[in-house]
Design a protein around this nucleic acid. Structure first.
Lengths: 326, 326
DNA sequence: CTGAAAGCGCTTACAG
DNA sequence: CTGAAAGCGCTTACAG
């Protein structure tokens, strides 16, 4: 059932049917009613591909992500999708978690109006080359990443500022012996550590390698960090963790060994996601303000799609979520 | 830059360019090389919409879900997407979490080869009507749901069997006083409760309303359940929870009040997701075997797409994950 | 207010 | 082995 069939049944031309479907002006009421009736009667839905061919757009935006199962990332995707939906865009998710699927081959199967990359893992020369070669005119939004290309835009969480908020807060509550738990060497964690160090220096507090614990970015990593903290008897009254999950693991172990939180040791996380709510009191954390980040990202991306000038790189300030673990 | 431009530059017809792009046989090596060179030189990518119009498919499958931020659901989506990718399908996610976006309007913007609904919340007369009206010939897979339509297929976790495994396991460890924590009235939770009751009866164990606690399906709900358990002094040595998150909350509170787990009270969850790993020992739970469910779902959906006979409703047996809380 | 015709960018029989 | 032509299902100037 296509537009010609409808036209025939209604006794009009396909052009007229098209006008009715798209609510174009200058249709006689009589014709309009007649066509509408035939449309309903046949449960007609216009072929989206044919429409897309004319407008050269499927109203589709690709979101490229490393692993959608990560809670923080699924929250970001949710926000981005909802905002795009409000502007009549659909989103197609390319999950690059599994290395053996060819992301770029997959991309080429669709005609995408714009691309959104989530996470700094896509800020690579390979991606830069690929985009400049095959998508030189497609607006690209790097969410928490950078890409040095005329068609690329960024919205980035200012993690350093977030860590400064944490240190400031802990310092004001009288904490002096800071230990930092790191989990990766990616850009985000580097920014976090940098903010942490900067603020410590500002307060004239000591920090060296002996106060830096590096582990995995999960609950186990937190337990591991706590174990090493105790094993090496590192003096510590404030344990600053790079991720909520790490903080939860560390807290779990420290409580087990009889430490009072935050009395003996204050603990903080980063991201302020649900993991930090699986305790009483809640975990003190930095909220990256991902809703605001998503809002800015979509606003700028839509601007770029309308060929307007948009800010190339925006840093969004996170805020402190003050739980009871500090 | 379209296929005509390439054809002109290569001095051949568009048909020949098309043959090269699609690796069709019967091309002279000379022509092939010449066209390939022009293709590379211009970083040509065929227009996916135009291709789609010919084949009447964008190789796109729509996944409709209530809220992608839910950890269990994001895991399911991950599995489904990866499997579909292997078969050259892309997936577009329609998140119906926000009621004020019009799901079905959104659907019609794309030409979808198949639809996958995740969760029993889509097993409604409204969806049935809509599908039978507008997508009578599109294969529809209900993941953990049912839809009585000739083009609809189901893969469902046999939650009742899962709960039976739990009860059997607890009974064998000597537990006698079972309390059940429910969280919803949806089909899945009904099946869970039914399995629980059935097995209890089989063992001749008592169960009545006084041993059923209904609360919310989150960590707070678990804490609430524990509080009520203590407040009403319900005799209990086995607390069976409908979800992992509930179990974690209950465990948190019971530990706080000095109960030994599983010595005094055994605790079990359902879904076997990461929440249950945020403790030591891990939470005993039922693994719905979502990987296997996804495998079967995609296998049957692909079968339906190839117009083969496929099983209409498949129940997948979950298995017990035996942690240390039981 | 309405219709005939061209065009969107491909692919695919068909003919040679 | 290659090309001319038709067709996929719409929309959109253009003409009337």
């Amino acid at each position: 059932m296509n537009i010609y069939d409808i036209a025939k049944k209604a006794g009009v031309s396909p052009a007229t049917v098209s006008r009715v479907i798209n609510n174009k002006p200058n249709i006689s009421d009589r014709t309009y009613q007649k066509v509408q009736a035939v449309l309903k009667e046949n449960n007609y839905i216009p072929n989206a591909i044919a429409r897309g061919l004319v407008s050269n757009s499927m109203n589709l935006i690709g979101i490229i992500v490393d692993d959608i199962r990560n809670l923080y990332r699924s929250h970001i995707i949710y926000e981005l999708s909802q905002l795009l939906n409000q502007h009549r865009y659909n989103t197609i998710i390319f999950d690059f978690g599994n290395q053996d699927n060819d992301l770029f081959n997959s991309l080429q199967q669709q005609q995408l109006d714009a691309l959104i990359f989530i996470g700094s893992s896509f800020s690579t020369p390979y991606v830069t080359d690929y985009i400049s070669k095959y998508y030189p005119a497609t607006p690209v939004m790097m969410f928490n990443g950078l890409l040095d290309l005329p068609n690329a835009y960024s919205v980035i969480c200012d993690e350093a500022a977030g860590m400064e908020l944490i240190v400031e807060h802990l310092y004001r509550t009288g904490k002096k012996n800071f230990v930092y738990v790191n989990y990766s060497e990616n850009l985000a964690s580097q920014r976090k550590l940098a903010g942490f160090c900067k603020k410590l220096e500002e307060y004239g507090l000591a920090f060296d390698e002996s106060r830096l614990i590096t582990t995995t970015g999960d609950f186990e990593g937190g337990r591991d960090a706590a174990a090493r903290l105790l094993q090496y008897s590192i003096p510590c009254d404030a344990l600053v963790c790079g991720l909520d999950l790490i903080a939860m693991g560390a807290m779990y172990s420290l409580k087990y060994f009889g430490y009072s939180i935050p009395g003996d040791i204050a603990i903080t996380g980063f991201d302020n996601i649900i993991y930090g709510k699986l305790s009483d009191p809640f975990l003190t954390s930095v909220d990256s303000n991902h809703k605001e980040m998503a809002r800015v990202a979509i606003e700028n991306l839509l601007g770029a799609l309308r060929k307007e000038e948009a800010e190339k790189v925006v840093y969004v300030r996170p805020f402190l979520f003050c739980g009871g673990t500090s």
